[in-house]
Write a protein that binds this DNA or RNA. Sequence first.
DNA 1: GTGAAAGCGCTAACAT
DNA 2: ATGTTAGCGCTTTCAC
Lengths: 350, 350
Amino acid sequence: MSGHRVPAPRPPTLEHVARVAGVSRATVSRVVNGVRNVDPDIREVVEQAIAATGYVPNRAARSLVTRRTGSVALVVSEPERHAGGDSFPGQVFSDPFFGRVVSGILGVLGPRSVHPVLMLVDTPETRAGLVTHLRQDHVDGVLLISIDPDDTLPRLLTEAAVPTVLFTRPTRPAQVSYVDVAHTEGARLAADHLVARGCRRIATISGPLDTPAGQDRLTGFRDAMAKHGRPHAVSVEGNFTQHGGEVAMADLLVRVPDVDGVFVANDLMAQGALAVLRDSGRRVPEDVAVIGFDDSSAALSCRPPLTTVRQPVEDMAAEMARLVLAHVEEPGQRVTSVIFEPTLVVRESA
Amino acid sequence: MSGHRVPAPRPPTLEHVARVAGVSRATVSRVVNGVRNVDPDIREVVEQAIAATGYVPNRAARSLVTRRTGSVALVVSEPERHAGGDSFPGQVFSDPFFGRVVSGILGVLGPRSVHPVLMLVDTPETRAGLVTHLRQDHVDGVLLISIDPDDTLPRLLTEAAVPTVLFTRPTRPAQVSYVDVAHTEGARLAADHLVARGCRRIATISGPLDTPAGQDRLTGFRDAMAKHGRPHAVSVEGNFTQHGGEVAMADLLVRVPDVDGVFVANDLMAQGALAVLRDSGRRVPEDVAVIGFDDSSAALSCRPPLTTVRQPVEDMAAEMARLVLAHVEEPGQRVTSVIFEPTLVVRESA
DNA sequence: GTGAAAGCGCTAACAT
DNA sequence: ATGTTAGCGCTTTCAC
């Protein structure tokens, strides 16, 4: 609109503030950073000067000397994207779960004014690029959410000595901190509830058995059933998708037509199972009781609403944030894992 | 583990590379930044030195001089959080929609190695903090997703002269770029489909009428119906939530018991409407045809799967990213709005 | 307790 | 086409 360029008004610097306050840059710096050795009177004057000038520290300049960026990467790692697929990356992002993670992380990081920068790793290039970025001062640490069971990222990151925290235990043991839910305990909760409800023919649709979550939920279920004197509960392996749940449920119905209680290893599959049960003319929970896992938004929108095992995702994410921050502070920090207790959320399906 | 501290091996700098290559820092800088004026032979030598040393530019140092950070803020702005609510922020994050936005943004930003940093604004403090952050060189631009109809952020940002792009047209006119979908066109698509299907008693459940989306979808629907010679279609105002959809549908059933076609202004409400219709003994689509809006994941998991108006969210988000980048490049850039055409996704509900 | 001065690693004139 | 030089805004010894 206007014909001439405005000379880009530079924001105030420490230097400005120092002049206004009549002190040196160093003193202002001390005040800004809350270092003790400052005379209360001087501090007062400096604070007024800061307010008057509207000074805000320049992050780049600070990072350059402190070698800290005040930001952590929130990395979502997915299995290789097949060239023929949609043009858009990020299947995880469309799961409400991701939002809960973000929410939990922000709750911890925000107040400390550390910002999460989002990164997606789903190709060899992005994978290499991530490590490259991390090798330099771009972020102080990494929060990794990996979908791929045999992801190499956990190892790459620990080798690069980048403070890292994973969501869920890595498939292969690694020297890295993580948070997770007590999967076996959650499965036990479900099994106990089904038994207490009076179900006689109880089965399970498990997750993929090459994932820790898939394994543990099945193990927990089996152990609990054994304790109830029923060591031979039928299980069908699913793949954690809604469609997979449909297929598995149909299969289960063939193998155990009189099944009256099913523990499904996640809500998405449970949603599919519910649909198949309805189509087969069975009522839930009267004829078949169904329990899911995750307490995703799907659990709420299901008909009937799903009884499910709740992972305290927000709490877990918050803990991840605390852990990276701790690792950043204290690079010598030993590797830590924090396991959260799940709870059973009883709705209508069981 | 080890008793003594390792002296923190500093990453290679331009200086290192320059020495290895036997040239000056400036030349290495030129090679790194792809400036033309470099002799091909020298360039070759420098590139080898870069590879040999494993050099990666230090972002902080670069930002300090260029006054660019190579990152943009992805700001989610929600209405004031009430003190009594959950302890965790971010209702938007748990909607799959958010993930689609992230996905679209990453598709554009990633290749240019610009990173989105996540920010949530839901209190006066975070709001003030955002502006403060932006006033300095923390991010180059802002992508704003606002849920609050009377958000003051759009104005604050434009006043602060921060390159900004909004998702959806702001409630109050403002000098700011945005992307949006042609809401009226989407509503027309739905109305036409319902009419073409042979529905005789068509009604709508609208969104909140104090939002542009709520208004436009209703207007588009009304106009289309008028063109079909039915200017008096009944409408009930909803609030865009699943529960709101249930309430509105129940209301509608009382007012128009023989309704046989409903355009619901978003999928979440449509999901609620579906449940109420089922409970009332009506079959969908045989007795009542239902069309939603958004093509969210809810649309797919509904029973029956929802016919709905699809917003090309990923494309829209990608365009947002392109727009900020353009505004960052060319600060004089005039304000732009890009409107995307919706499409009707026909499934089973209509 | 406070100031002076030396860089952090990089880009951008400017000079050659 | 390449090298020299001067900072960008901040923290941090080191004197005082």
